[in-house]
């Protein structure tokens, strides 16, 4: 059984493996970094280090549903390949155990999310839990940047 942190973004539930989650923080001051991609919200100060913060919904291509309590919003700081990144989410709901055999391969698109960002899906009560592939969510920023530029150029 592996443990996962369940994060809510809009009406979707995402899960990150606990081994990759460093901490869950309340949302504090975030300093915007000009001329970066829209989903990069900026940088924050976390126990002496500078940590970039991304909006998870925007990163994975969801349009954020304007709901939820500001008080519930959290930054989930995850670390992949010695790279720490904070993910802004609407709420952190639970830590759950999921058996590897309960994880199904990702369908090509789940809730507007491209399969490359997924490790798989699993049931959690009445919800479908989307297990994030953080290596992918945090990488390919460059590719993403290129795609954005292309959009600008070609419309």
């Amino acid at each position: 059984m592996d443990s996962y942190v369940v994060m809510r973004v809009g009406s979707e539930r995402y899960a990150a493996h606990v081994a990759q989650v460093r901490s869950v923080e309340r949302v504090g001051d975030i300093t915007p970094v000009p001329r970066t991609l829209p989903f990069i919200k900026g940088v924050m100060h976390l126990r002496g280090a500078i940590v970039p913060v991304i909006d998870l919904a925007e990163r994975v291509g969801l349009t954020r549903a304007a709901d939820g309590d500001e008080e519930d919003r959290r930054i989930v700081v995850a670390e992949v390949d010695e790279m720490a990144v904070g993910m802004l989410v609407d709420a952190v709901e639970d830590v759950v155990s999921i058996a590897p055999e309960a994880i199904e391969p990702p369908p090509s698109v789940v809730g507007g999310l491209e399969a490359v960002y997924l490790r798989g899906v699993a049931r959690w009560g009445e919800h479908l839990l989307v297990l994030l592939n953080l290596e992918r969510v945090f990488s390919a920023v460059e590719t993403e940047q290129l795609r954005q530029v292309e959009k600008l150029v070609h419309g």
Partner: peptide, 16 residues
């Protein structure tokens, strides 16, 4: 302080 690997392509800023 370095901006870290995630933002290493950012040219405008040398750190924070």
């Amino acid at each position: 302080k370095p901006l870290g690997r995630y933002l290493e392509d950012v040219r405008e800023f040398a750190g924070a």
